[in-house]
Amino acid sequence: MTAVINPTGAAPVDPVGPEKSVARVRRGLTNPVSSGLALVIGVVWTIPTVGLLVQSFRSKSAQDSKGWWHFSGLTLDNYRVVTTGLHGDSSKSVLPFLVNSLAIVIPAAVIPIVVAALASYALVWIDFRGRDWIYVGIFALQVVPLQVAVVPLLRFVVSGAHLGSVTVIPKLGLAGTVGAVWLAHACFALPLAVFLMHNFMSEIPRDLLEAARIDGASHGQIFRQIMLPLLRPALAAFGIFQFLWVWNDLFVGLVMSGGNADISPITVKIAGLVGSTAGQGGEVVPAAAFVSIIIPVLVFMALQRYFVRGLLAGSVKG
């Protein structure tokens, strides 16, 4: 997954009017070259995933002797090994890591959304000097690669922030817990979250807010009672973004968990399985990988609308 920030900040346009789309369909049916190209790319892009799905249901001997397209030796054993465990051995079970991923993804999605909504409210609706510069500054922070930020953040989680011998911020007690992982994700997601929220909030009519102000509503009340309900589409768009990003991340999970199996997300487990089963036991890897893939894929398919809307927010201009 890529964190996407589109710089041009405009609303997505409704692309096709009805009469144009009729013309398009007519034109398309007469063009075999593009239909053929579409078919080839579509098939080539789908086959690898189908291969993994089929392979995950095949026994070790079948995997050893024939390619997956023979559909031979179908069994559920691989899935037993990676879920409940088989013959009392649950060392290859990925279920605990699914739980870890879930325990990471919930705070990692909620915290930056709320923090970014608060920040954008100030940046859009409260007048103070330099707010545009603060916004541009936050947007520009996406330049910081995780590689630069993650190790110092780990140090902070373990020992707090110090200037010389003075403790600026004490340690928060999150070391060795999933908190270390989601805190990192929450911080790193903020530039994108602020950008998306700022975009959506700028489109809310100013009159609405001014009317509320005249009626005597305070900023706190306006934020809770007017902004949050209106922001629902933005919250959904960012929520699915962040869910996919956190669920699929390996780097942050690997560094922040430090290899502690109690707090490692599922990607760390899968990557570990790939390495540790290179010689033997590799027959369960496709099943394990499929278990890890299926959740984001289902979420993605169910909420694709919001995801695409988030992607398009601003990228398509004329």
């Binding site: 997954m1 892009w45 789908t46 995933t49 996919l244 669920w247 699929n248 991340d249 390996l250 990607t267 899968i270 990557a271 790939v274 990988a289 890890s292 893939i293 984001p296 894929v297 979420v299 993605f300 398919m301």
Partner: peptide
């Protein structure tokens, strides 16, 4: 669809 699949996957 591959957009939803992790790099590890």
């Amino acid at each position: 669809l591959p957009t939803a699949i992790s790099f590890v996957g």
